[in-house]
Design a protein around this nucleic acid. Sequence first.
DNA 1: TTAATAGTGTCTCTTAGACATTATCCT
DNA 2: AGGATAATGTCTAAGAGACACTATTAA
Lengths: 241, 241
Amino acid sequence: MISAMNEREFLKQYDKSAFEQPMFSVDNVVLTLGKGELEVLLVKRGEHPFKDCWGLPGGFVDLEKDQSIESTALRKIKEKTGVEPDYIEQLETIGNATRDPRDWSITTVFTALIAKQRCTPTDENVVLANWFAVSELSAMTLAFDHTKIIQRALKRLRDRATYSLVPCALLGEKFTLSELQKVHELILGKKLEAKVFRRRVENSGQFEETGEMTSGRGRPAAYYRLRSGTDAFNFEFIRTV
Amino acid sequence: MISAMNEREFLKQYDKSAFEQPMFSVDNVVLTLGKGELEVLLVKRGEHPFKDCWGLPGGFVDLEKDQSIESTALRKIKEKTGVEPDYIEQLETIGNATRDPRDWSITTVFTALIAKQRCTPTDENVVLANWFAVSELSAMTLAFDHTKIIQRALKRLRDRATYSLVPCALLGEKFTLSELQKVHELILGKKLEAKVFRRRVENSGQFEETGEMTSGRGRPAAYYRLRSGTDAFNFEFIRTV
DNA sequence: TTAATAGTGTCTCTTAGACATTATCCT
DNA sequence: AGGATAATGTCTAAGAGACACTATTAA
């Protein structure tokens, strides 16, 4: 009785090859701020393919534990860093017959930003998960297409840095505008005008002064934080071809 | 001998549930221009779940035929419209335990734009695939989360219409600036200034006059086409929080 | 001639960008 | 006082928006 058959059964009998499913995984480009450089979290693969290569932290969906692919991404990130990231967004999905030497394979990639000081000291896995300066990557051979994926994540981050203040997630709870500006300069690879940058921050309405000030050499700077109740990661597009 | 075992075998023995794979499919939001309204391509589902409901054209990856998920998307679109779309981009991937009543399910969604006149007259499937004005959708119950997906695709299209000229893919080979402006107005739901719009088109450098002119009532309009060699769908972001 | 549609001239207002200047700390 | 860093004042240039105006056709 056809209508009692579920679609999976139906497809199995209808066309075996149409039912054969590709492998699906989630990969994360987790970025943080190193000393004067962006760093990306990599894990050493214990199994082949690409055994002993470094690759992005990720893995398969756990149909029992995970409610969504976002849950999978967060779970994997938490496994390696001890915490949830300060910002996460879906980058893109790559699926083709060649990226995995074994078989057809699909990965949905997330980009996450995390303030390094929030990460709990790495557990026994310390040699299995580590931060690498993005400039080191050109000298490394990563698993699968992970080098290309990281490049695409960095490009997206550069886009975000030009028209949003999302990169503030790389800093902690509070930060000065100079610090935030330096992060943007680091990402964009160029100097920004302090006046222009401050205007943007103020006009965004996404931040507020904490009231605290830095101390040290030079004029003290005001600390800012995300305005409570504001989703700082909603930003408006303004025009233009 | 462990190292001779492939990862699939390994995972199977290591953790059965981690190997259990979710269903993966591709769905397409194919948009075209109806009479004064955007239309979306829907197909009537022949099998459950949501049997006899309208839903987005899509389906499973064919591991033999498809080189990538983009190939899957294009193949499915071609099956229903007879042609490849004029523009396609990946929208997002949705994967969770609840969107499919049967099981965990993942879909990568593509948004495609197509000039209606390019579509070959629908074949015997005419009642199985049809264009629906987007305004009709609120009165319809679509399969799965397809209503929400279409809304998200439309939002993305509105974004594109504000800072790119991608919507030109809804028109044919050649078009007048008035026509293109009307398309943008339709998508954005508001009037645009002719002068401003023309400036944008000219400054983009993506179009050129064909030399032909319209005839009919009123001053003739110049026809434009995509400048050859230009990827009109590359556009620059200009700033701003 | 009039209605209709295409296309331009030009003014205003906003804002990015540049850069000089002021402010406030430490030593 | 002098160096360092934070923050502001203010001028300029570019461009979006507004809208009046001109251009070219069919009826």
